[in-house]
């Protein structure tokens, strides 16, 4: 059992959704003061403003936070703002696939907290 299966390490080393969206429809930043991790999450909607066209994250953090952010950005593509409001921490953990130790749960959920904040702006 490892929290660091190959996919997680790859998403950490070569994140697919890392970057900044200029003029996003919603944006939120979160910091974990205990470990210094920080994330900014950006959402851009499609022309009809009905769905997420693109999600990106920026910042710095541990492998679990980075991989979680990458997975989250992928997962929210195409979702409506209603979908985003319903999207739960459990949904993210399910996609992530591994149950983290209690001490590391915060790392996985930091991007989720950013998503929740960003969603309120849509």
């Amino acid at each position: 059992m490892t929290l660091y299966r190959q996919e997680i390490i790859e998403r950490y080393r070569f994140p697919r959704y890392k970057g900044v969206i200029k003029n996003p429809h919603a944006q939120a930043e979160k910091i974990n003061s205990f470990c210094g991790d920080e994330i900014a999450l950006f959402l851009r909607l499609n022309d009809e403003k009905s769905q997420v066209a693109e999600a990106r994250f920026d910042g710095q953090g541990c492998a679990l936070m980075t991989a979680s952010a990458d997975i989250l950005c992928e997962a929210v593509q195409g979702k409506t703002s209603d979908d985003l409001r319903k999207f739960s921490a459990e949904d993210l953990l399910q996609i992530y696939g591994e149950a983290p130790s209690p001490g590391r749960l915060k790392c996985l959920l930091l991007p989720y907290e950013a998503l929740k904040s960003a969603t309120t702006l849509l």
């Binding site: 660091y4 390490i9 950490y12 080393r13 959704y17 890392k18 970057g19 900044v20 969206i21 200029k22 003029n23 996003p24 950006f42 851009r44 693109e54 990106r56 920026d58 910042g59 710095q60 492998a63 980075t66």
Partner: peptide, 20 residues
Amino acid sequence: KKLSAIPVSLSHDAVSAGNN
């Protein structure tokens, strides 16, 4: 070896993904 070969400074000059 497993985790280090990443861009150490992730950051604020990272590629801009969106274009709108």
